[in-house]
Design a protein around this nucleic acid. Structure first.
Lengths: 219, 219
DNA sequence: TGGAATAATAAGGTTAACCATAACATTTTG
DNA sequence: CAAAATGTTATGGTTAACCTTATTATTCCA
């Protein structure tokens, strides 16, 4: 059961894999971008994680988690999201900062603390950003949603979750009312990868496509 | 106010300085022992902390905290002990494991989390091991106690706090009923640094001198 | 006062996780 | 299909915080 103790860096790579789609093949470039390291560094690190049997890398194609990697990754994500719940519901920490603050705690959390925390919180199923929390047994039901960036003009959709992690992006979305539960209508999509124009509540909001990728809406 | 971000290792050295007596001059050997590193490593590290202005080192005498170091150290200890309270009172984690588990969390705790946690816990003044929790403003009132190892035969004392940190030592003491609040009578002290014989509750307990150093009793 | 214990310093080694630059391979796209 | 974009590999460099071994300095104590 207990894996041979993963480094903080390893955990970040695993978490990124889940956040970029648990079962997707992810390019090293995307991984590098999300983790804010150079592609060369990500390459190196991916080789290391590969050696540990946590993921497989098909050159020029991308990376995907092994079964062991998936298990470890879910555990990391579980800790991350449980802490988000705690920080939000009990410590009343600002929504946009949850990810960042929970992230540091996550790496420092022993299994017995994770489970005691889950019990304390009443086994929550979702984090405040709307993302599902993997169960203690490793089972994980990803959201059945798609990025807002793929919505067509005229569609009305409901926000399920925000997949962003950095405080500034989260703050930006929050300020525009783009939060889980919100209903959004796509008014216009500018050509050439231009921004979307959205109706969010009473307001009209322009949102760049790359930001819209972080907004997961109901299928 | 906010210091330039201390490394985990730095925090451990600062914390050890507080635990070995906030205002004491501590030998590098003692420091090395408590931190489980070689004296050579501790020496190196002390030089680095000295360069950062956190402590001063008088060769062949020992190390003591500067004002800045004391402030930083109290902050670290505050976080440590607040987490101990949380883990104990809300997550019902085993008493002997509190230090170790809180220690990891401590390093990962941002100032706003610390203060929100303190508020959540109701600004506790003591950790479950009986040690005082430094206040948010940096003020810190060390216990007015002394190690049980300095008690004389025939004395009856009350345990104020346990200053040990490792799970095995804490478990050992707990199993023998040596916990904050307990009253202890010193029945005998063997010669040549031999063990103390104690009356703890109904039981007679033999306790090595080095373990008795971890038990802080009322003056 | 002299030897033991303790402390300091020097020199060199290790590890994880990054970095840059450059050369080369493959894939995508216009 | 060729050029641009993306990915890979090689080489060498950095940092923090340890390690070992060996030498030298100081302090303590009997």
């Amino acid at each position: 059961m207990s894996l041979p103790q993963l480094s903080e860096s390893t955990e970040m790579y695993l978490k990124a894999m889940v956040e970029l789609g648990l079962s997707n093949v992810v390019s090293i470039g995307r991984l590098a971008e999300r983790l804010n390291v150079t592609p060369v560094s990500a390459n190196e690190m991916v080789r290391r994680l590969g050696d540990q049997g946590l993921l497989t890398h098909t050159p020029y194609k991308g990376v995907s988690l092994t079964d062991r990697g998936r298990e470890a990754a879910c555990d990391v994500v579980r800790r991350q999201r449980l802490w988000e719940v705690f920080l939000y519901e009990h410590l009343h920490i600002e929504w946009a900062k949850l990810y960042e603050l929970a992230c540091s705690l996550e790496h420092a959390t022993a299994p017995e603390v994770t489970e005691a925390l889950a019990a304390f919180l009443g086994d929550p199923k979702f984090c405040p950003r709307g993302n599902p929390i993997p169960a203690a047994d490793g089972s994980f039901q990803p959201l059945d949603g798609r990025p807002l960036s793929t919505a067509s003009v005229g569609e009305t959709v409901e926000v399920l979750a925000i997949n962003a992690t950095t405080t500034d992006v989260l703050k930006y979305l929050q300020e525009r009312g783009i939060l889980p539960g919100q209903t959004i209508r796509v008014l216009e999509a500018a050509p050439l990868q231009g921004p979307l124009t959205l109706k969010v509540g009473e307001k009209e909001v322009a949102l760049g496509l790359s930001l819209a990728e972080f907004v997961i809406v109901k299928k």
